[in-house]
Nucleic acid binder design. Structure first.
Length: 445
RNA sequence: GGAGAGAUGGCCGAGCGGUUGAAGGCGCACGCUUGGAAAGCGUGUAUAGGGGAAACUCUAUCCAGGGUUCGAAUCCCUGUCUCUCCGCCA
């Protein structure tokens, strides 16, 4: 969420930033100025009536204490207050309605992208800022991970469909172990070498948490909700703390750890790494990436989350992105870093780097991590603050997160990049200790 | 699932219809004291919104949402969460 005072004072800038995203300022902002003015007038009116009521009530109290003479005078005042109260209820209702309208329109405005983000309409306008690693040359035609996985007996999509439907996977044997090895390797690397604290959060969250990270109210259709979760209520701006949704990413529970808290400045930056499964309805992705395990309803991910002082978020964003890149480098997987353009940057993000891994089986680069700086956008929604100095006013922190990495996509990147002519998969050096010392995955007899 | 107790500021903790935005303590800041520190003493220490150039002022907030009342942290209802005991369970 943007700051109301900021939007009020910088309406032209906000409009320009919305246009850069390809959004229509008129739709998102509506008659912002008029609504803002109406709201403030309504609040002033209602508060003046309240002030009068409070004043009368105090007089009544004083008079009643004074004795029987006072009590008579008090009765007259009580009558005046009773009349005042009816007007007040109406004024209060009007003010609350306008306030809610403004709040909701504010909550639907995406974050402002940073100035260095290239202006563009779609992923075609993203900017590749670096490319790492040598693409391996094969003396045979590299296969896709779904062919390799099936023939090795480590991946079973048909049985997964029987169990759960399309877009689910079952892993067997070394395939299951590879997934687990990747999780451990990533967590260990981030915790021991990159200074993150490991955290294991709940895999279900309430709607308030989803509001905090910006997933609600706009993106309810992307989420799996449990039967006690109410998407209609969320659409009306009612965020409950007694309902449950499956998390689409660990970003949601981990960022919300400090919702409604004031953090000690000395603790910043705070860095967490978390492994969780992620659940996505993939609404609107029908027909996209239907083969293999690129796009699943459930996938595993190791996430990186940081809380920083505003002035530190830019360098911390670079570090976090490097932390994710180092996993790819340790696994010797070729990748490139892409700075997303304004039109491709997510709703809550001010600046996003995507890391794209090379997939020889499909002859293309594919997103494997997305590292974003949210500035104060999420912190404002989730009310996460810190105190810059001992007696100073609390300020909103900046939040950041990135995949470090998407485990399922790392799994398939290894399978495709490390495939051998006979269909076996070589295990990257760093993973061997996590794989019980085996060097290759071969067809089990 | 059953029974009971509770939820107050950065933290602990009083208050249980009317100068209570909230005693007291801790923490923190500033000052005094000191060779320097500690201790001690003094002063100050919530958030959001409205009005105002500012000084300042008003409104709301004692888990959340309703209600009673001229007036609610205080009384009533509903919900959520926490703790204790019992049951069940990985």
């Amino acid at each position: 969420m943007l700051d109301l005072q900021f939007v009020r004072a910088n309406l032209e800038l906000v409009e320009a930033k919305l246009r850069a995203r390809g959004a229509d300022p008129a739709t998102l902002l509506g008659d912002f100025r008029a609504l803002d003015l109406q709201r403030r007038q309504a609040i002033t009116q209602a508060e003046q009536s309240k002030a009068r009521r409070n004043e009368l009530s105090q007089q009544i109290g004083a008079l009643k204490k004074a004795g029987p003479d006072g009590a008579e005078a008090a009765a007259a005042l009580m009558e005046e207050t009773r009349v005042l109260k009816e007007q007040l209820d109406n004024l209060d209702r009007a003010a609350a309605a306008l306030d809610e309208e403004l709040r909701q329109s504010l909550a639907r405005i995406p974050n402002l992208t940073r100035d260095e983000v290239p202006v563009g309409a779609s992923e075609a306008d993203n900017l590749t800022v670096k490319t790492w690693g040598e693409k391996r040359t094969f003396d045979f035609t590299p296969k896709s991970h779904w062919d390799l996985g099936e023939s090795l007996g480590i991946l079973d999509l048909e049985r997964a469909a029987k169990l759960s439907g399309a877009r689910f996977a079952v892993y067997f044997g070394a395939g299951a172990r590879l997934e687990r090895a990747l999780i451990s390797f990533m967590l260990d690397t981030h915790a021991r070498q990159h200074g993150y604290t490991e955290v294991l959060p709940p895999f279900m969250v309430n709607s308030k948490s989803l509001y905090g990270t910006g997933n609600l109210p706009k993106f309810a259709e992307d989420l799996f909700r449990c039967s006690d979760a109410d998407a209609d209520a969320a659409g009306r701006g009612e965020y409950k703390d007694s309902d449950h949704w499956l998390i689409p990413t660990a970003e949601v529970p981990v960022t919300n750890l400090y919702r409604d808290e004031i953090l000690d400045e000395a603790r910043l930056p705070i860095s967490f790494t978390a492994y969780t499964p992620c659940f996505r309805a993939e609404a609107g992705a029908a027909g996209k990436d239907t083969r293999g395990i690129i796009r699943q309803h459930q996938f595993q991910k190791v996430e990186l989350v940081k809380f920083t002082r505003p002035e530190d978020s830019e360098p911390q964003h670079e570090r976090l992105t490097r932390d994710a890149e180092e996993i790819l480098e340790a696994l010797n997987l070729p990748y490139r870093r892409v700075l997303l353009c304004t039109g491709d940057t997510g709703f809550s993000s001010a600046k996003t780097y995507d890391l794209e891994v090379w997939l020889p089986g499909q002859n293309l680069y594919r997103e494997i991590s997305s590292c974003s700086n949210f500035d104060a956008f999420q912190a404002r929604r989730a009310n996460i603050r810190y105190r810059p100095a001992p007696r100073a006013k609390p300020e909103f922190v900046h939040t950041l997160n990135g995949s470090g990495l998407a485990v399922g996509r790392t799994w398939l990147a290894i399978v495709e990049n490390y495939q051998q002519a006979d269909g076996a998969i070589l295990i990257p050096e760093v993973l061997r200790p996590y794989m019980g010392g085996i060097n290759t995955i071969q067809r089990e007899s």
